[in-house]
Design a protein around this nucleic acid. Structure first.
Lengths: 226, 226
DNA sequence: AGGAGTTTGTGAACGGGAGAACAAACCGAG
DNA sequence: CTCGGTTTGTTCTCCCGTTCACAAACTCCT
């Protein structure tokens, strides 16, 4: 009778529906906590953690409150405990298999990026349409033909794909990924992807970021071009 | 008596104070327009352009309205004219000199990325603290010692810097950049930078994007781990 | 010239996130 | 046990951004 049925979960814990803005900050908190942890810190206040993460302390506390009450009033948060809780909420307590398509300059860099491995992701395959690259071994993983995508996805249970191809190829790659069963895509190609309902796409665009900076930069020195 | 005094500008054109969310979308429109232009399209409606950019048409129209009235009712927008207007508003009608610090995997990829050159940016220098790299030439630009930063910035009038170093070095690099006169920073290092008032920092974090995808992915297959 | 059809530009309602401020809860000292 | 100091969790308010809906404006056809 109630809409509750939709939000009710089997689990005994975890209040669901975390705001999107909060979800985007959780990884930042996670990194800050890891840094604190490595520095030997046992406990920290919301003020300290907020400062380490570069956000407002009130915002931090509100964000954490969506996950539950993991702090202790008058004391603060247990660094290691909170770190685990956030990692669990995000889902990076165990590794996610990932495929990267497009082994150009950027693909190389991504394959070699150690931050993936250390933060819950494992590159299980590198794919490229160019046969000349199929001899290569990058970061300990050999480059394979793009047509192997479906088999690899099935074999490793891959849910997340990274697109690092030229813009023209991006939509085709996305289509094949979706057809193979991938339901989350990180797109580095400068192209707008259209995907079916239920598939998440996040886009990282290097030149757009620079253009945004250029806009503000232009403002700073507006009329003073002499 | 009115707050108008604050928003009034000397220029005869350009209504100022464009919302930040709009600024972030202008480069997307610019790219969509360029694509349309290359396809030979002369005119397009807000609906078409919005679809090409992957946004709502009402949002597109409102965004464009902040720049002025560049469309024609009953007709649409002149592709080439609008393209120029947006480029001018962003400030990419002429090239911005850019320095990249940290020539590891990612730095290499960035230096070779053709999208910068074609979108109003010119890499004038590659810097690295490691003397072993100073022999290298990447993308036609030779890698120079980090200590040359100030001289290069002065010489070329560089206002925008890109940080592609490990996390530990990022803050130091940022400090040196600011001291040299750079006032806009694009940071790829997984670290929170603190900079003085007036300096803009944008952050691109590869693993955070993946973590956000992982969160949603975990939801899709919530209790069905069987 | 006039009217039908089309598309822009914008006013207004709506929803979500940011930040301030405070009550509830915890620790430790006496 | 009580009290003062500290820090969390949460409520409330404000502001930005999104979206709807419609009037204004333009073209084309008759």
């Amino acid at each position: 009778m109630e809409t509750r049925a939709l939000t009710a979960r089997t689990s005994t814990e975890s209040t669901r529906d975390i705001p999107e803005a909060t979800v985007a900050r959780l990884p930042v908190y996670l990194r800050a906590l890891t840094t604190l942890c490595e520095a030997g810190t046992i406990t920290c206040s919301s003020e300290e953690l907020a400062s380490a993460a570069g956000v407002n302390s009130a915002k931090l506390r509100k964000d954490l409150s969506y996950l539950g009450s993991y702090g202790t009033r008058g004391v603060g948060y247990d660094v290691d405990y909170l770190r685990y809780q956030i990692a669990r909420e995000i889902g990076v307590t165990q590794d996610w298999p990932v495929v990267i398509v497009g082994i150009g300059n950027l693909g190389h860099a991504l394959a070699n990026y150690s931050g993936f491995r250390s933060r819950g992701f494992r590159v299980v395959a590198l794919l490229d349409a160019d046969p000349n690259r199929h001899e290569e071994v990058v970061a300990g993983v050999d480059v394979r033909p793009f047509d192997d995508l479906e088999q690899i996805v099935k074999e490793h249970g891959v849910a997340i794909g990274v697109i690092a191809t030229p813009a023209l190829a991006a939509q085709d790659v996305a289509n094949r990924m979706v057809a193979s069963g991938i339901s989350s895509i990180l797109n580095f190609a400068p192209a707008v992807l259209s995907v079916p309902e239920g598939v998440d796409v996040r886009k990282v665009d290097l030149s757009i970021e620079l253009q945004i900076l250029a806009y503000h930069e232009q403002r700073k020195t507006h009329g003073a071009t002499a």
